[in-house]
Structure formats: structure tokens, C-alpha cells
Design a protein around this nucleic acid. Sequence first.
DNA 1: GTGAAAGCGCTAACAC
DNA 2: GTGTTAGCGCTTTCAC
Lengths: 355, 355
Amino acid sequence: MTGTSFERTSTARPTLEAVAALAGVSRATVSRVVNGGAGVREPLAERVRRAVDELGYVPNQAARTLVTRLSGAVAVIIAEPESRVFSDPFFARQLRGIGRELALHDSQLVLLWAEGPQDHERIARYLRGGHVDGALAFSLHENDPLLSLISRAGVPVVRGGRPAAHEDGGADAAPAAAVPYADCDNRAGARDAVRHLVSLGRRRIAHIAGPGDQTSAVDRADGYRDALGADRSAGCAGLVEEADFTVAGGARAMTALLDRRPDLDAVFAANDLMASGALRVLRERGLRVPEDVAVVGFDDMAGVADAADPPLTTVRQDVEGMGRLMVRLLMRLLAGEDAAPVVMATELVHRESGM
Amino acid sequence: MTGTSFERTSTARPTLEAVAALAGVSRATVSRVVNGGAGVREPLAERVRRAVDELGYVPNQAARTLVTRLSGAVAVIIAEPESRVFSDPFFARQLRGIGRELALHDSQLVLLWAEGPQDHERIARYLRGGHVDGALAFSLHENDPLLSLISRAGVPVVRGGRPAAHEDGGADAAPAAAVPYADCDNRAGARDAVRHLVSLGRRRIAHIAGPGDQTSAVDRADGYRDALGADRSAGCAGLVEEADFTVAGGARAMTALLDRRPDLDAVFAANDLMASGALRVLRERGLRVPEDVAVVGFDDMAGVADAADPPLTTVRQDVEGMGRLMVRLLMRLLAGEDAAPVVMATELVHRESGM
DNA sequence: GTGAAAGCGCTAACAC
DNA sequence: GTGTTAGCGCTTTCAC
């Protein structure tokens, strides 16, 4: 006897009307109290509040949305398959950051998966249906039609991650440059990591880069080059190998690098997963970390960086904070204010692999 | 010029009324066509459809919800901190399964984080506000007040993962036994894994168990004992060590096991992360895998099991499928049908570590 | 400051 | 089969 359908219909929720009757005031007054109570004298307001408590009144959001045109919900749109959400446990943390911050703003998180163009129409309909006040978009690839679709639906949007430099947002969209985003400072983080290796006296520093079509990977590679700018002799020539942000890819890249430059004495991998793959290859080749080759990763992924053998020196980013930041940017947009992109600082975490 | 606020207000969406006017019919007829078109003659229906297309009409969900009392949304409630969602990349997959299946049912996914009792009130209000038609609950601990809270809100609910045997669902809730759930067959999966090790000729098979307060861990340990039931000599005495589902925990447990029983010749770890930790310790001790010690994990976690050194033989579960299943169970509940718990089969994946 | 009344956009009886 | 009508529960002018 689950009795669910019974319970559902039997739970006749009290309405504004009922509260008004109990408190002996008009619906308008109850509404004012429920919405902050501006312009209602204290004794009255208190009576209303007691009636609300007594009845366990909860406003009907649908009725409210119907008149205010505000849904109190925000869509989080995940674009696949470019998405790293399945390889990257950060996804959950970022979502949590978003969820927490939204709760602070009395807003709900509606999760939308865009697996391909076939989903665009469904998502467009949803956004245009007035279900959400704004949207947060992740893992968009360059000039993603999804973004112009969101713009055309008239829904304010904030991106996760910096857009590619040459994106224009599509034909009838606002220029992508106008869409605010939150990101961490991948370039500066990478620069710090490589400078640290240089300061350790490493002279032949290799880089295992991420996919060239992801801005985070490109920025980290740029940071690598920045750091070596003053001291070109320490890197670059034959010392960069691109991989795919996975452990296996990192291992392959490490193998290629060692074959080409057996004399390298440090590696900066664009993420911790690839750094782990590199560690394995180094071990198999009998190279000691960090004595022979120092290794630095990126992300400080829990359960990977700290559990690696040896534990990884790596660049930490505040993923949950980025999620919260995206929400704050969106809230500013919703308030009609301007919102500039925000880039968060990273922090180098010292562990055994990069000593 | 982001122009967001302008765009929002300028997008005056067409209503049923407008469509009716253009098609030269009544609002009721348009409503019928939009909702499936039952009972509307073809020529008319076609005219309405054209008007809908021409105007780009999208029904206002709030108005619809107000009258039907159906929101077209389902809440996914994640209870922390017991939650494995941050160590476990499966979370994203399960969410995707849920999202996909919900899309098939024209329903949306609203994500709710319950970090602690302080969030219960907020969530209760939300559920009672009629925002969602049903709920999917994860990572509830035993007798979680959250579950009775959901029941009391009158919202049909399905759990992810089997409840503990002695749960009663709290004072005024439906008995937990009545709440349907989806899970994989942890016990049978573990049994298969250990039987496989036995069939390999292993005689001293250890088990690295998960936390005793998680049913998945308990079930896997039971499966381990099941498999050895017929052949007690192959396991148990001093051969079980509990850990916490992490790499580091797995390493610690492996160390303890080896100290106690240096002669063990196989290990079944309750998840892949712990199996990875075990691999590291075995390697450090100079033991060969699988020659000296065979290792089997659980989960077939992408990027862990396949990337391990050597790659892990492990028990695969269909996480995305479980997510979809939970949605189907919920849909049956919503249709007023009975929904019995569903337990999904697992599959042993053969890789080098367990040959 | 408070109340009365209109209406947000839709569905579902109920007539015809 | 199709149209007419009465709300769903709320916010928000506009009087008072």
C-alpha cells in the first residue's frame, strides 16, 4: 500500500484565500506579507504570519510565475559529447557550487542535456516556454549553435569557461564576446607551474597538452610557453605533445616525449589524469620521480593528484567557487546590470612529484 | 550592448488566444490540438498546426501547471555528505540516464542538494510547493528523515540503491519497504567475481570491503562470503579488511592484509578505486599481478579500471541504465500503478589483473 | 496601509 | 466535433 495517488490528491494545499480568511484580512495583504511584508503594519503582518504557519501555507509557484513571468529557476545546459563531465569528477563539484548559490537566491537548478542537434529543438522550446529565468552553459564548442539558440530564446546566459577567441556567437546572436563567463586563470596557473619547475633547476621541461580545441588546454599550453619565454633553452623544441586529458593519453604522450627527448628532466601535464599516465610510463622506464624527472599536473583532482604515486604537485582551481560565480554573474544579468567575465586565480599545491 | 533585459521584455510570446484567432477557431480547439489533437477533425487540426508554427507558439507551462496540477518536472535529491557523488564519476552518468529518460517523458530534471538538516525545511517547502510531480532520492542514509519528509510532502518517490534491511522510514512515513528502488545486484556481482578467482585456482582470496554503513558495500561483502561458502578454505579468516572506497583506503587495507596474510593469492576489492590502491601496494612490495596476486575490482569505472596498471578485471554495472530505470519506476507510480524494486544484473569484465 | 477587482494563459466541464 | 465559460492561485493596479 504505497498510497501515493491517494496522498497526492488528499493533500489539498491551503491557498492565499484560506490564509486571508483565517487572519481576517484580504488576499492582497497576505500576498504582501508573504513577499517581504513591505507596506503592512506590524500587528497585522504578525497575524498573517501566524495564519501562514498554522495552515502550513506554501505559495503556488505556478500561479506566481503566471503573473510575474519569473520562474525562480535556472537551466544548466550541458553540451555533449565535447563535455568533460564524464571524465571529470569536477562536474559534481561545479554543479554543487551552482546549486548552493542558487539556493541562496531562492532559485532552482534545472539540468538539461544537449547530446546533439536533435536535442536543440527540445531545449529551444523549453527555454522559450518561460520555464527558466536564465541559463548556464557548459562545454560549448566553438560557435555552438546552442548559444545562439539560447540568445534567440531571449534567455540571459552565462558560460562556463572562456570562449575561443574567434567565436562570433552565430548569425543572429549577440556576439559571444558579450556573453559573460567564469573561468580559472589557466594561463597564469600553467605559468606558475612551469616557473616552479624552472626554479627547481630543471632545464628540459616538456609539456603534455590537452586537446587543441579546448580553450583550457590552449591557455595552459600558452602559460607553459610564457614561463619559458625568458629562458627558451628550458623547453619547447620537441618537448610538447598533445593528448586528450585521459590517463591513457597522458601515458602515450609521455612515451612519445621520452622517445624523442630521453634527456628531459621535467613534465608539466595539462591535467592530473594525464600526469598520472605520465607517472606510470616514467616508472616503467625506470625513471625516478622527482629525482630524474619532476612532474606537475593541473586540477588537484581529489582521488587522483593526492593518491598518485608519488603524489602530484599540481595547480589547484576552485571549481565549486567557479560554479557559484557563474550564478552571481547570471543574477547580475537578471537584475539588468552589466556582467563582465570573471577569471579566478589558481594555486600551486606542492607534493612529492614536483619537489 | 548585451541587451538582455530588452530582449526579454520584447519577446512577447504568442498565447493560445493568438493562435485561435489566426486559425479562426476557439481556444479550446487549439488546446486540444496542442495536447494531442484527440477529437478534432483533420482539416481543422491542420489549420491550427499551421497557425502554431507560423506564430512559433509555445504553451506557457505555468498556466498549464496551474490548472492541471502537473508540473512536468521531477526532483533529483542528493543527500550529502554520505554521498559518493564526489568521488564517483558515475554520478554524471546516472544523472544523464535520468535526464534522457525524463526527456522521453517530456519531464524536466530539477536538482536538489541536501547538505544537512538545515536544508530539509527548504526542500520540504519546495516539494510541497507543487513544483515537481515526483522525486528521485540518492545516498540516503539509514532512516533518513529526508525520506519521510518527501513522503509527507505527498510526492511519489523512488530511491537509488537498496535501503538497509532494518529501515522503517520514520514515524509518519510510508514504510521504507514500500518505496521502490533501483539497484544493481551487488551481491551476485561480487559472487561472480570471487567465483572467478576460485576458478582460477586461487586459494587465499582476500576482500577489501567498503564502509559497513553502505548497503552496496555490505552486499558485495555478502557476495564474497557466498562464493566462498562452498569452499571456506579459500577465504575469510583474517582476509577481510574494511576501507572507505578511496584509493588511499584501498592501499591501507592492502597493506594490512599483506601484513596479516603474506601468503594471499587474490584480492577482491569492493570498488575499482580501492583496487587501484591495492595494485600500488602490491607493486611496491614486489608482488606481480596477476601472477602472484590476482586482483578484481567493482564498477568498471572508466579512466580507472581500464587505465590501471595492469588493467583491472572488474564487475561492470550499467549506471546510466539504473538512472533510466528509476525514472520508469517513478512514472509508474505517477500513473497510479504499483512499482516493485528492480535489481539489475552485472557483468564480469576480464582484464589483465584477474587472469 | 488596506481592500476590491482584474487578469496572467491555460484546461476541462458543459452546452450545443 | 466545436465553442463557451468558469476557474486554477497568485500579484498588482487602483480606489479608498
